[in-house]
Write a protein that binds this DNA or RNA. Sequence first.
DNA 1: CTAGGGTTAG
Length: 753
Amino acid sequence: MPSMFNGIYNIISQCLSSSTITLSHARQAHAHILKLDLYGDTYIATRLLSHYANNLCFSQVTNLVLHFFPNPTLPSFTSIINAFARSHQYDAVLRLFSLMGHKGLAPDGFLLPSAIKACAALQALKPGLQFHGYAFASGYALDSILASSLVHMYLKCDSIGDAHRLFDEMPERDVVVWSAIIAGYSRRGMVERAKEMFSEMRSEGVEPNLVSWNGMLAGFSNAGWHVEAVELFKTVLNEGFLPDGSTVSCVLPALGQLEDGVAAKQVHGYVIKQGLGSDRFVVSALLDIYGKCGCIQGMLKVFDEVDQREVGSLNAFLNGLSQNGLIDTALEVFRKFLDEGVELNVVTWTSMISSCVQNGKDMEALELFREMQAHGVEPNAVTIPSLIPACGNISALKHGKQTHCFSLRKGIFDDVYVGSALIDMYAKCGRIQLSRLCFDKMLDPNLVSWNAVLKGYAMHGKAKQTIEMFRIMQESGMEPDEISYTCVLYACAQNGLTEEGWQYFNSLSKEHAIETKTEHYACMVTLLSRVGKLEEAYSLIKEMPLEPDACIWGALLSSCRVHHNLSLGEIAAEKLFLLEPDNPGNYILLSNIYASKGMWDEVDRIRDVMKSKGLRKNPGCSWIEIGNKVHTLVAGDKSHPQMQEILEKLEKLSVEMKKCGHLPKTGLVLHDVEEQEKEQILCGHSEKLAVVLGLLNMSPGQPLQVIKNLRICGDCHSAIKFISSLEGREIFVRDTNRFHHFKDGICSCGDYW
DNA sequence: CTAGGGTTAG
């Protein structure tokens, strides 16, 4: 038997000695070792261990070390740890270090940097501090390599003060540690500080290498110093350095922001020439810049020649497509890779969510958010503010609140993006108090947050609060921008505050050196024309130094309809027909003016023009969230499963409303048809259908929140006032213009809109 | 095969 045993032992040991055996061979050998009880043999155990380590089988490694390895030594740990470190399995590295401790072994000066590097990669400050303590106590900390790995660790953990303190204590500082600390400041936006350190390094006689320059370049790019970044890039070239992948990927975003397509192509040429085309960072930066410059051809050229499963490049590609109006293509490509099982990360999902929201695909965004979690990808602090606007856009308050709670559970309390998104979302969902509460809870609101609050109040027609917040904003030292002014002017326009409107309109350029934009003129035109000063509004348009756009003429035309002013209405409509020949809304408005004056021939003429252009009235469309579902109702479309019930309820309500004095405003119906038929048409309006659907499905006392894709119709406005008192419901309707909050038979707009 | 740098999502 001994000879046979020796034979098997030799086979196993030879097999394990080969560095090329596969994992399954190692497993087979392991089975034999178990059977023959060969664990006691140090050589065999070490070989087996190293195979498992090289294949990153973490649980097998720990299992062997804990239960079978007779006497693990520092070298065996060193080789295992290095195997995991090489493959960036830093979590495993740290656990192996603690396993080492349990086995009574301590790392030496050579192994310690691996531990510290793992802490840096995981941004794990606590174990990092422990290793620092140990290195200090055992005298290794004087070693320059170890010290610079510690400096690096502190930088990665955002403890730049600790990093600098240690840096100051180092007896000798080489270009490596200088580069690290410079990049640390530079990437955190402290570019000036980085520049100081850079010259300090030179004055100490340490010459920068390419890595030092790259660190500066990354900071410039990050901080938005695009012109300076490109200049710096030229300096690097002049200094005689040959840019590497890092240099290229640092300078490309700057060129992208400058939308310099020519430079992009030049860099692309350089990338090919230097063989940097397989560097994943370079590839995604190239895709990004081509996307930003609108060069789809360039994107395709790059993407076709790389590993498309590399998630960074794929993300840049998808994002480039979405940003150039190809959202559907992006979604298709995204689905294709998802189906193929390509590992998509949080950036991929967030980017798709964000692209959907930017392209009006709010429901899709909510669905993607659900799907990403089903795929085991955790949303982060970027995902959440990308999703929140989707909830606001479709007034999905429930989804919005869920997302808010989600962010709190994730420990995101004072993120300025999340805060601003929440302010906007709650305002759009009709909950102006919650919106304000989110603002009040913010530690450090920025301009976007302030503007979100102003916009919320303005949309709700709350001029007093808008003006009050605008005042507080300035008192707090926050300088208003053109958006802030648009909000205030908008609020004035919604409330007919002529005097205040003029005052703010005049002060924006005088007191704040803000350029007066067409939006500001549009607000003033709305304000003046809506209070009946149509001629004054028209004069302002004629005097304005900018070319009046469709918003301005549209504002005038809308007011002409309200005030039945045909002559100015026709002027505005003429302009609009040139500016937006295919917008049916303008034809409808003019036609409404004719109809209100009984000029049916003109109404017919407009109808013929629309027909010849193939234009149809945009169907009115309303949304209401019930439970976790957002229902869509389209005027005249009877496909909703509860339509029969809706119509029956509406019929009952009509009878009651008429008893209370509601007269159907059939004058608002454009069609030259019988009165009764007009009433029918009014009854089919989407906002009424949505309100009734809400009445049927939401428990009493719950407020209803409806949004409409057009302005609310006058008859619906009156009807919903009656419904709010008959049914004892609070009803919020958000149209394209503003909010209407119906309660006890009155509307927050005071019938002025 | 034991220290430093980069890309893509708000």
